[in-house]
């Protein structure tokens, strides 16, 4: 419950505060969001698998976000930022799909 409440509260705050994303952060924020989503779904899957750990969740969440942003940053420095962003999004997308598939199997037995 608590994490869901946190998510909704964050969305509401984001909608109402309407912050401006700083320029240096603009290429990384979307990738970071995707990475965080992957971490969250991985956490839910771990819960259902019975192997959830708060510490693992927090660390995986943070490391996902940081590594994703760093890869994009590195790509920008190497001149392949666009392609690398696409690659990260594809990898994270595949992981999200496989996590969702696992969660679905647990919850709906299908």
């Amino acid at each position: 419950m608590i994490p869901l409440v946190g998510l909704l509260a964050g969305i509401i705050v984001g909608v109402f505060v309407r912050p401006d994303v700083p320029l240096w952060m603009q290429p990384y924020l979307p990738i970071a969001v995707i990475a965080a989503l992957d971490a969250v779904l991985g956490g839910i899957r771990a819960v259902l698998d019975g192997i959830f750990s708060d510490k693992v969740f927090v660390i995986s969440f943070l490391s996902n976000v940081v590594v994703a942003a760093f890869i994009v940053f590195l790509g920008d420095k190497l001149g392949v930022g666009g392609q690398l962003s696409t690659g990260v999004v594809v990898v994270l997308g595949i992981r999200i799909f496989s996590n969702v598939a696992s969660i679905r199997r647990h919850l709906f037995h299908a």
């Binding site: 946190g6 705050v13 969250v40």
Partner: peptide, 18 residues
């Protein structure tokens, strides 16, 4: 976890708007 999820929601909304 609450803080992280809060951040995620915030970032999501911000990015969508952006």
């Amino acid at each position: 976890a609450f803080v992280l999820m809060l951040w995620l929601g915030f970032a999501l909304a911000t990015q969508v708007r952006q």
